[in-house]
């Protein structure tokens, strides 16, 4: 059963290791999730499993969705998320109405956490892309945070000037789905549904997060997993 769960970000705090190192940690409250649909290549053309999280007042749900959840013998849920699986064999491990708790991460060392980042609104080049802006003095007037030149006559060989597509400019920043990869799992408390990871997780406190086992590890972390 691939480790996958939905939850909410509680907030950040610190851990001290025994030798006195300080680890910044994020506490996530995950699960319990309910399996509300199992998709197979026969029924849907591909293999997947759908998890639902968090009870919601029926008034805030819709009749089709209430019926969908009722099929899995569960109360109306706020959030439904699908996990693609390799084949039907993997899907057959799941059962409709099955409950998934934080203990699926008991043996997992690294996780990926996906959530929606904090919205920052429309931001200039300096904040959005890390541009340096212009100098504070030496004749610069009223243009200290401007991006500067965005392309000119013949700025790229073969092209006759003009602004290239995808040029980084001021834009709306934040509020998009972001994944923080390869966070160390510090501890798992299945009883209370708490998952504690090292480092930061996108989004505000109380924001919704999706946690899965890390899919792409760097070399150092790969060795850790093999050794463990």
């Amino acid at each position: 059963m691939p480790p996958f769960i939905l939850g909410r970000k509680v907030g950040m705090t610190r851990y001290y290791t025994e030798d006195g190192k300080n680890i910044p940690v994020t506490v996530l409250q995950v699960g319990p999730c309910v399996v509300t649909q199992v998709k197979t290549s026969e029924s849907d053309g591909y293999s997947a499993v759908q998890f639902a999280f968090e009870d919601v007042r029926p008034r805030l749900s819709t009749m089709p969705l209430i019926g969908h959840d009722a099929k899995a013998q569960t109360a109306p849920k706020r959030l439904h998320k699908e996990l693609r699986l390799d084949d039907d064999a993997a899907a057959s491990e799941f059962e409709l109405g099955q409950t998934v708790l934080a203990d699926v991460f008991a043996d997992v060392k690294f996780v990926d956490v996906t959530s929606s980042s904090k919205g920052k609104g429309f931001q200039g080049g300096m904040k959005a892309w890390g541009f340096k802006g212009k100098e504070a003095s030496h004749g610069v007037e009223r243009k200290h945070r401007s991006p500067g030149s965005i392309g000119g006559h013949g700025s790229e060989a073969g092209n006759s000037g003009g602004v290239k597509k995808g040029k980084r400019m001021a834009r709306r920043l934040g509020g998009f789905t972001t994944t923080t990869r390869n966070l160390d799992v510090v501890s798992v408390d299945a009883e209370r549904g708490l998952l504690i990871v090292k480092g930061t997780v996108p989004g505000p406190n109380r924001g919704i997060v999706t946690v899965r086992e890390a899919v792409r590890l760097n070399r150092r972390k790969q060795t850790t997993v093999k050794a463990g």
Binding site: G11, T13, S187
Partner: peptide, 10 residues
Amino acid sequence: FNQTEILESV
């Protein structure tokens, strides 16, 4: 959930 309570308990 009570954020402070959880963070203090962990």
